[in-house]
Nucleic acid binder design. Structure first.
Lengths: 163, 163
DNA sequence: TATTGTTATACTCTATAACTATA
DNA sequence: TATAGTTATAGAGTATAACAATA
Protein backbone atom coordinates (compact mmCIF):
# COMPACT_ATOMS: atom_id res chain seq x y z
CA UNK A 1 0.00 0.00 0.00
CA UNK A 2 1.01 3.62 -0.31
CA UNK A 3 2.30 5.73 2.55
CA UNK A 4 0.10 6.65 5.49
CA UNK A 5 -1.84 9.77 6.31
CA UNK A 6 1.16 12.05 6.78
CA UNK A 7 1.71 12.37 3.00
CA UNK A 8 -1.19 13.66 0.93
CA UNK A 9 -2.46 11.69 -2.04
CA UNK A 10 -0.30 12.91 -4.95
CA UNK A 11 -3.12 12.63 -7.48
CA UNK A 12 -5.49 14.88 -5.59
CA UNK A 13 -2.66 17.19 -4.61
CA UNK A 14 -1.54 17.77 -8.20
CA UNK A 15 -5.15 17.90 -9.33
CA UNK A 16 -5.68 20.93 -7.13
CA UNK A 17 -3.03 22.76 -9.13
CA UNK A 18 -4.69 21.84 -12.43
CA UNK A 19 -7.62 23.64 -14.09
CA UNK A 20 -10.78 21.59 -13.81
CA UNK A 21 -13.88 21.75 -15.96
CA UNK A 22 -15.98 20.01 -13.33
CA UNK A 23 -14.88 21.51 -10.03
CA UNK A 24 -14.70 25.13 -11.10
CA UNK A 25 -17.26 27.88 -10.64
CA UNK A 26 -16.47 29.47 -13.96
CA UNK A 27 -17.93 28.71 -17.37
CA UNK A 28 -15.32 27.36 -19.79
CA UNK A 29 -17.55 27.85 -22.82
CA UNK A 30 -16.26 26.26 -25.99
CA UNK A 31 -13.31 24.75 -24.16
CA UNK A 32 -15.65 22.18 -22.61
CA UNK A 33 -16.40 20.77 -26.06
CA UNK A 34 -12.83 20.50 -27.30
CA UNK A 35 -11.01 17.19 -27.33
CA UNK A 36 -7.79 19.19 -27.48
CA UNK A 37 -8.55 20.99 -24.23
CA UNK A 38 -9.25 17.72 -22.46
CA UNK A 39 -5.99 16.35 -23.82
CA UNK A 40 -4.21 19.41 -22.49
CA UNK A 41 -5.71 19.08 -19.01
CA UNK A 42 -4.75 15.41 -18.90
CA UNK A 43 -1.26 16.32 -20.01
CA UNK A 44 -0.89 19.03 -17.36
CA UNK A 45 -2.00 16.56 -14.73
CA UNK A 46 0.32 13.80 -15.95
CA UNK A 47 3.27 16.15 -16.23
CA UNK A 48 2.66 17.41 -12.72
CA UNK A 49 2.39 13.92 -11.28
CA UNK A 50 5.55 12.77 -13.01
CA UNK A 51 7.59 15.89 -12.18
CA UNK A 52 6.66 15.37 -8.58
CA UNK A 53 7.81 11.77 -8.68
CA UNK A 54 11.18 12.40 -10.38
CA UNK A 55 14.27 13.95 -8.79
CA UNK A 56 14.63 17.74 -8.97
CA UNK A 57 16.20 18.64 -12.29
CA UNK A 58 15.08 15.43 -13.98
CA UNK A 59 12.17 16.53 -16.11
CA UNK A 60 9.84 14.12 -17.90
CA UNK A 61 11.50 15.19 -21.13
CA UNK A 62 14.97 14.41 -19.80
CA UNK A 63 13.81 11.01 -18.66
CA UNK A 64 12.53 10.33 -22.19
CA UNK A 65 15.92 11.28 -23.57
CA UNK A 66 17.75 8.88 -21.28
CA UNK A 67 15.29 6.08 -21.98
CA UNK A 68 15.71 6.43 -25.74
CA UNK A 69 19.50 6.55 -25.42
CA UNK A 70 19.40 3.40 -23.34
CA UNK A 71 17.21 1.51 -25.78
CA UNK A 72 19.24 2.58 -28.82
CA UNK A 73 22.92 2.23 -27.90
CA UNK A 74 25.22 4.28 -30.08
CA UNK A 75 22.46 6.51 -31.41
CA UNK A 76 23.80 9.63 -33.08
CA UNK A 77 22.59 12.94 -31.72
CA UNK A 78 20.92 13.88 -34.97
CA UNK A 79 18.85 10.70 -34.78
CA UNK A 80 18.06 11.37 -31.15
CA UNK A 81 16.93 14.86 -32.10
CA UNK A 82 14.63 13.47 -34.79
CA UNK A 83 13.17 10.85 -32.47
CA UNK A 84 12.24 13.37 -29.80
CA UNK A 85 11.55 16.38 -32.03
CA UNK A 86 14.40 18.33 -30.48
CA UNK A 87 16.63 20.83 -32.20
CA UNK A 88 20.27 19.82 -32.35
CA UNK A 89 21.35 22.45 -29.81
CA UNK A 90 18.70 21.18 -27.41
CA UNK A 91 19.98 17.66 -27.95
CA UNK A 92 23.52 18.72 -27.12
CA UNK A 93 22.31 20.21 -23.85
CA UNK A 94 20.23 17.16 -22.99
CA UNK A 95 23.18 14.82 -23.58
CA UNK A 96 25.40 17.20 -21.60
CA UNK A 97 22.94 17.02 -18.72
CA UNK A 98 23.17 13.23 -18.44
CA UNK A 99 26.89 13.14 -19.19
CA UNK A 100 27.63 15.56 -16.34
CA UNK A 101 25.78 13.14 -14.06
CA UNK A 102 27.81 10.19 -15.35
CA UNK A 103 24.79 8.51 -16.90
CA UNK A 104 25.76 8.63 -20.58
CA UNK A 105 28.95 8.97 -22.63
CA UNK A 106 29.77 10.04 -26.15
CA UNK A 107 32.00 7.72 -28.19
CA UNK A 108 33.62 8.68 -31.45
CA UNK A 109 32.54 6.57 -34.40
CA UNK A 110 35.39 5.10 -36.46
CA UNK A 111 35.39 6.14 -40.08
CA UNK A 112 33.71 9.54 -39.76
CA UNK A 113 35.20 11.70 -37.07
CA UNK A 114 32.32 14.17 -37.12
CA UNK A 115 29.97 11.59 -35.64
CA UNK A 116 29.65 10.33 -32.12
CA UNK A 117 27.34 7.71 -30.70
CA UNK A 118 25.72 8.12 -27.31
CA UNK A 119 25.70 5.26 -24.81
CA UNK A 120 24.40 4.81 -21.29
CA UNK A 121 26.97 3.97 -18.61
CA UNK A 122 26.38 1.23 -16.02
CA UNK A 123 25.58 3.99 -13.53
CA UNK A 124 23.16 5.46 -16.06
CA UNK A 125 21.40 2.12 -16.39
CA UNK A 126 21.07 1.86 -12.62
CA UNK A 127 19.68 5.37 -12.43
CA UNK A 128 17.31 4.63 -15.28
CA UNK A 129 15.99 1.53 -13.54
CA UNK A 130 15.19 3.64 -10.52
CA UNK A 131 13.59 6.39 -12.61
CA UNK A 132 11.50 3.86 -14.53
CA UNK A 133 9.89 2.84 -11.28
CA UNK A 134 8.96 6.46 -10.57
CA UNK A 135 7.58 6.84 -14.07
CA UNK A 136 5.46 3.70 -13.85
CA UNK A 137 4.12 4.84 -10.51
CA UNK A 138 3.17 8.28 -11.85
CA UNK A 139 1.49 6.68 -14.85
CA UNK A 140 -0.54 4.41 -12.57
CA UNK A 141 -1.60 7.41 -10.52
CA UNK A 142 -2.67 9.23 -13.69
CA UNK A 143 -4.97 6.39 -14.73
CA UNK A 144 -6.02 5.38 -11.21
CA UNK A 145 -9.70 6.04 -11.89
CA UNK A 146 -9.79 3.92 -15.04
CA UNK A 147 -10.32 0.19 -15.39
CA UNK A 148 -7.70 -1.83 -17.34
CA UNK A 149 -10.14 -2.01 -20.25
CA UNK A 150 -10.64 1.74 -20.21
CA UNK A 151 -6.87 2.30 -20.15
CA UNK A 152 -6.47 0.04 -23.17
CA UNK A 153 -9.23 1.87 -25.02
CA UNK A 154 -7.79 5.26 -24.15
CA UNK A 155 -4.35 4.28 -25.41
CA UNK A 156 -5.77 2.86 -28.61
CA UNK A 157 -7.68 6.07 -29.34
CA UNK A 158 -4.75 8.32 -28.45
CA UNK A 159 -2.54 6.25 -30.72
CA UNK A 160 -4.99 6.80 -33.55
CA UNK A 161 -4.41 10.52 -33.03
CA UNK A 162 -0.64 10.68 -32.84
CA UNK A 163 0.22 7.34 -34.50
CA UNK B 1 -14.45 21.59 -48.67
CA UNK B 2 -11.00 22.62 -47.61
CA UNK B 3 -8.52 24.39 -49.82
CA UNK B 4 -7.04 22.74 -52.91
CA UNK B 5 -3.70 21.05 -53.52
CA UNK B 6 -1.60 24.20 -53.13
CA UNK B 7 -1.83 24.04 -49.33
CA UNK B 8 -0.50 20.91 -47.62
CA UNK B 9 -2.71 18.93 -45.25
CA UNK B 10 -2.12 20.63 -41.88
CA UNK B 11 -2.54 17.39 -39.93
CA UNK B 12 0.19 15.53 -41.76
CA UNK B 13 2.35 18.62 -41.84
CA UNK B 14 2.24 19.13 -38.08
CA UNK B 15 2.52 15.38 -37.53
CA UNK B 16 5.90 15.42 -39.21
CA UNK B 17 7.13 17.79 -36.53
CA UNK B 18 5.85 15.53 -33.75
CA UNK B 19 7.59 12.48 -32.30
CA UNK B 20 5.93 9.28 -33.45
CA UNK B 21 6.01 5.89 -31.84
CA UNK B 22 4.92 4.15 -35.01
CA UNK B 23 6.84 5.88 -37.79
CA UNK B 24 10.20 6.08 -36.08
CA UNK B 25 13.21 3.80 -36.46
CA UNK B 26 14.16 4.12 -32.82
CA UNK B 27 12.99 2.04 -29.88
CA UNK B 28 11.04 4.11 -27.35
CA UNK B 29 11.22 1.45 -24.66
CA UNK B 30 9.04 2.07 -21.66
CA UNK B 31 7.60 5.20 -23.22
CA UNK B 32 5.53 3.02 -25.55
CA UNK B 33 3.65 1.62 -22.56
CA UNK B 34 2.88 4.90 -20.84
CA UNK B 35 -0.53 6.48 -21.10
CA UNK B 36 1.13 9.73 -20.08
CA UNK B 37 3.48 9.65 -23.06
CA UNK B 38 0.61 9.07 -25.46
CA UNK B 39 -1.25 11.95 -23.85
CA UNK B 40 1.81 14.12 -24.33
CA UNK B 41 2.18 13.23 -28.01
CA UNK B 42 -1.49 13.97 -28.61
CA UNK B 43 -1.09 17.27 -26.81
CA UNK B 44 1.96 18.26 -28.85
CA UNK B 45 0.07 17.47 -32.02
CA UNK B 46 -3.05 19.36 -30.94
CA UNK B 47 -1.06 22.35 -29.78
CA UNK B 48 0.80 22.45 -33.07
CA UNK B 49 -2.38 22.23 -35.12
CA UNK B 50 -4.06 24.97 -33.12
CA UNK B 51 -1.05 27.31 -33.06
CA UNK B 52 -0.90 26.99 -36.81
CA UNK B 53 -4.56 27.87 -37.13
CA UNK B 54 -4.51 30.93 -34.84
CA UNK B 55 -3.02 34.33 -35.62
CA UNK B 56 0.64 34.90 -34.74
CA UNK B 57 0.86 35.92 -31.09
CA UNK B 58 -2.46 34.34 -30.20
CA UNK B 59 -1.45 31.17 -28.40
CA UNK B 60 -3.89 28.42 -27.44
CA UNK B 61 -3.48 29.55 -23.86
CA UNK B 62 -4.36 33.15 -24.72
CA UNK B 63 -7.42 32.00 -26.60
CA UNK B 64 -8.54 30.09 -23.49
CA UNK B 65 -8.11 33.25 -21.43
CA UNK B 66 -10.27 35.29 -23.77
CA UNK B 67 -12.92 32.59 -23.97
CA UNK B 68 -13.19 32.36 -20.19
CA UNK B 69 -13.37 36.15 -19.87
CA UNK B 70 -16.12 36.23 -22.44
CA UNK B 71 -18.18 33.54 -20.76
CA UNK B 72 -17.78 35.06 -17.28
CA UNK B 73 -18.32 38.81 -17.65
CA UNK B 74 -16.82 40.81 -14.81
CA UNK B 75 -14.61 38.01 -13.56
CA UNK B 76 -11.91 39.22 -11.17
CA UNK B 77 -8.34 38.47 -12.12
CA UNK B 78 -7.79 36.32 -9.07
CA UNK B 79 -10.72 34.13 -10.14
CA UNK B 80 -9.41 34.03 -13.69
CA UNK B 81 -6.03 32.95 -12.36
CA UNK B 82 -7.62 30.16 -10.35
CA UNK B 83 -9.71 28.96 -13.30
CA UNK B 84 -6.71 28.66 -15.62
CA UNK B 85 -4.05 27.76 -13.04
CA UNK B 86 -2.13 30.96 -13.75
CA UNK B 87 -0.16 33.01 -11.28
CA UNK B 88 -1.48 36.50 -10.72
CA UNK B 89 1.41 38.17 -12.56
CA UNK B 90 0.78 35.92 -15.54
CA UNK B 91 -2.88 36.86 -15.42
CA UNK B 92 -2.02 40.56 -15.45
CA UNK B 93 0.06 40.03 -18.59
CA UNK B 94 -2.64 37.95 -20.29
CA UNK B 95 -5.28 40.60 -19.63
CA UNK B 96 -2.82 43.28 -20.79
CA UNK B 97 -2.34 41.35 -24.03
CA UNK B 98 -6.03 41.39 -24.91
CA UNK B 99 -6.58 44.90 -23.59
CA UNK B 100 -3.81 46.28 -25.83
CA UNK B 101 -5.68 44.72 -28.75
CA UNK B 102 -8.96 46.30 -27.68
CA UNK B 103 -10.58 42.95 -26.94
CA UNK B 104 -11.13 43.28 -23.18
CA UNK B 105 -11.39 46.06 -20.64
CA UNK B 106 -10.97 46.33 -16.89
CA UNK B 107 -13.77 48.00 -14.95
CA UNK B 108 -13.52 49.08 -11.35
CA UNK B 109 -15.96 47.36 -9.03
CA UNK B 110 -17.97 49.70 -6.78
CA UNK B 111 -17.51 49.07 -3.10
CA UNK B 112 -13.98 47.67 -3.08
CA UNK B 113 -11.56 49.79 -5.04
CA UNK B 114 -8.86 47.11 -5.09
CA UNK B 115 -10.95 44.92 -7.38
CA UNK B 116 -11.61 45.20 -11.06
CA UNK B 117 -13.77 43.01 -13.26
CA UNK B 118 -12.67 42.03 -16.75
CA UNK B 119 -15.10 42.27 -19.67
CA UNK B 120 -14.86 41.59 -23.38
CA UNK B 121 -15.51 44.52 -25.70
CA UNK B 122 -17.74 44.23 -28.80
CA UNK B 123 -14.57 44.05 -30.87
CA UNK B 124 -13.29 41.32 -28.56
CA UNK B 125 -16.48 39.33 -29.09
CA UNK B 126 -16.13 39.64 -32.86
CA UNK B 127 -12.51 38.51 -32.68
CA UNK B 128 -13.48 35.66 -30.41
CA UNK B 129 -16.13 34.46 -32.83
CA UNK B 130 -13.52 34.31 -35.55
CA UNK B 131 -11.00 32.55 -33.30
CA UNK B 132 -13.61 30.01 -32.21
CA UNK B 133 -13.97 28.92 -35.82
CA UNK B 134 -10.19 28.36 -36.03
CA UNK B 135 -10.23 26.42 -32.78
CA UNK B 136 -13.11 24.18 -33.87
CA UNK B 137 -11.34 23.50 -37.14
CA UNK B 138 -8.10 22.55 -35.41
CA UNK B 139 -9.98 20.28 -33.04
CA UNK B 140 -11.68 18.54 -35.96
CA UNK B 141 -8.30 18.03 -37.61
CA UNK B 142 -6.92 16.54 -34.40
CA UNK B 143 -9.67 13.93 -34.26
CA UNK B 144 -10.01 13.45 -38.02
CA UNK B 145 -9.14 9.75 -37.84
CA UNK B 146 -11.71 8.98 -35.15
CA UNK B 147 -15.39 8.18 -35.52
CA UNK B 148 -17.92 10.29 -33.57
CA UNK B 149 -18.35 7.37 -31.16
CA UNK B 150 -14.61 7.13 -30.64
CA UNK B 151 -14.38 10.86 -29.99
CA UNK B 152 -17.13 10.59 -27.39
CA UNK B 153 -15.38 7.68 -25.72
CA UNK B 154 -12.03 9.45 -25.75
CA UNK B 155 -13.51 12.55 -24.15
CA UNK B 156 -15.29 10.52 -21.50
CA UNK B 157 -12.09 8.72 -20.54
CA UNK B 158 -9.99 11.88 -20.55
CA UNK B 159 -12.58 13.53 -18.35
CA UNK B 160 -12.27 10.68 -15.90
CA UNK B 161 -8.58 11.55 -15.66
CA UNK B 162 -8.72 15.31 -15.24
CA UNK B 163 -12.35 15.66 -14.06
C1' DT C 1 -2.31 42.82 9.03
C1' DA C 2 -4.39 40.79 4.76
C1' DT C 3 -5.67 41.14 -0.13
C1' DT C 4 -5.84 42.78 -5.25
C1' DG C 5 -3.25 43.83 -8.65
C1' DT C 6 1.24 45.54 -10.70
C1' DT C 7 6.12 45.78 -11.41
C1' DA C 8 10.85 43.94 -11.20
C1' DT C 9 13.70 40.23 -11.65
C1' DA C 10 15.41 35.75 -12.53
C1' DC C 11 15.23 31.27 -14.43
C1' DT C 12 14.05 27.69 -17.76
C1' DC C 13 13.24 26.31 -22.27
C1' DT C 14 13.59 26.81 -26.84
C1' DA C 15 14.99 28.65 -31.40
C1' DT C 16 18.07 30.71 -34.61
C1' DA C 17 22.33 31.66 -36.22
C1' DA C 18 27.19 31.46 -36.30
C1' DC C 19 31.11 28.70 -35.61
C1' DT C 20 34.41 24.18 -35.71
C1' DA C 21 35.85 20.20 -37.56
C1' DT C 22 35.34 17.10 -40.53
C1' DA C 23 33.92 15.08 -45.14
C1' DT D 1 29.91 22.58 -50.50
C1' DA D 2 27.55 19.96 -47.10
C1' DT D 3 27.01 17.74 -42.53
C1' DA D 4 27.56 16.70 -37.14
C1' DG D 5 27.99 18.83 -33.35
C1' DT D 6 28.91 22.99 -30.43
C1' DT D 7 28.58 27.63 -28.80
C1' DA D 8 26.41 32.21 -28.48
C1' DT D 9 22.54 34.87 -28.21
C1' DA D 10 17.92 36.19 -27.97
C1' DG D 11 13.06 35.35 -27.17
C1' DA D 12 8.88 33.48 -24.88
C1' DG D 13 6.89 31.85 -20.82
C1' DT D 14 6.71 31.36 -16.07
C1' DA D 15 7.76 31.90 -11.10
C1' DT D 16 9.07 34.52 -7.01
C1' DA D 17 9.46 38.54 -4.54
C1' DA D 18 8.77 43.24 -3.67
C1' DC D 19 5.66 47.00 -4.06
C1' DA D 20 1.32 50.16 -4.15
C1' DA D 21 -3.27 50.80 -3.06
C1' DT D 22 -6.99 49.54 -0.40
C1' DA D 23 -9.45 47.08 3.07
Amino acid sequence: MSSPTSVADPLSEVRHRTPSLARSEVDYGLLTDLTGFSVKLAWVLGHGLLSRELDPGVTPHRFSTLEVISRNPGLQQTQLAAALALTRPATTLAVDFWQERGCVERRKIAGDRRLSGVYTTPHGEAELERLRRCVREADLALTADLTPEEIATLRRLLRKIHR
